[in-house]
Simulated scan of single mutants.
Amino acid sequence: MKSNTLLLLLCTIFLWTLHAKAQEKSKLLKSWICVSSMSLPDSIVGNNSAYIRYTFEPRTSYVSFDPRWNEHSQDWSLEGNQLKMGSVTYTVEELTDADLVLVQPGIQVVTFRDEQLFCRDSTHLIQDGIFKSEPVFTANRWFAPRLKSEDLHPIIGAALGSSASYRGKVFAVSFVIGTDGSVNDVHVLQSVKDSYDQKVLKQLDKTSGLWTPPFFHGHPIQTRMVFRMNYAGATIVPFN
């Protein structure tokens, strides 16, 4: 009788432990925006205010430095309070539904916040006109459409080929991402050459429908974004 009771107790503890681990992992399955980064004493890493987003999916994580696409995919695992992403291991100092604090021992402490919390803050919502009778907002680090595939740079660059005559010249285009992820209202702001411009616009048009619009209080919104590139490589308009 005692052995059965002990076995039942051990099974209960085992199942509870599995449940607790699953709950901790499920808390991670979202996008987290870096809100502060502090270097630890004796570290050569300085404090960083750049945009950083960690996104966790069941088997893959992404470290992204642009709100408009996912970058740098890698495997991840969580064992106890040890979070491994690729070859880097962090200590999870805090994990709640809203906040994530990671410590890279001897290097830095990074604090993240649930991306969805920013999608309810109108402070960063800046209207930029009207399109199709609906307001358009300026894309920024808090409200930006996200490309579902790779980032826009290689998609655009794939069609350009190489020509030394274009090197150093700047091309800029603005466009609206609709609530359905479509590309609309495209305007060339800075031209390189008509044939060059048309190649870029053709590639951009291929991404129509591949964007996820940002949401405000659970509702998709239209955003206008600007993409700049030069022939030596693509750059983006910095987000405030």
Rank of each mutant, 00 (worst) to 15 (best):
K84P: 00
S73W: 11
L78H: 05
Q104G: 03
G80S: 02
E71R: 10
T96L: 09
L125V: 07
D121W: 04
E94C: 10
T111N: 12
I130A: 06
T89M: 03
C119E: 11
V103G: 01
V110A: 04
C119T: 12
I126D: 04
G106C: 05
K84S: 06
V92P: 00
V110C: 00
Y90A: 05
D75A: 11
T96I: 08
D114E: 08
Q108S: 05
D97R: 10
C119P: 00
V101A: 03
G129E: 01
T111K: 15
D128Q: 07
W69H: 04
N70S: 13
L83A: 01
R113V: 09
K132D: 15
L102Q: 05
Q104P: 03
Q74F: 11
D114G: 04
L100Y: 01
Q74H: 15
G86I: 09
G86Q: 10
I107L: 09
V110W: 00
D97P: 05
N81K: 15
L83G: 01
K132N: 13
I107D: 03
G106V: 03
E134D: 13
R113L: 07
H124Y: 11
S133R: 06
Q116H: 14
E94V: 09
D128K: 04
D99K: 14
E71Y: 04
T96E: 07
L117N: 08
T96Q: 08
D121Q: 12
F118C: 06
H124D: 11
H72C: 15
Q82G: 07
R120K: 14
G129H: 05
V88F: 08
G129K: 05
Y90Q: 03
E115K: 11
W69G: 01
Q82L: 14
E93Q: 15
A98W: 11
V110Y: 02
L102H: 01
T123Q: 15
Q104T: 10
C119H: 08
L78Q: 01
F131D: 09
M85C: 14
V103I: 15
V110P: 00
L100A: 00
R120Q: 13
Q82K: 15
E94A: 14
P105A: 07
P105V: 05
L95H: 05
N81Y: 13
D114W: 00
Q82W: 07
G129M: 06
F112M: 01
S73H: 13
E94D: 11
Q108A: 11
D121F: 10
T89V: 12
I130N: 13
L83N: 01
Q74E: 15
Q127I: 12
T91F: 13
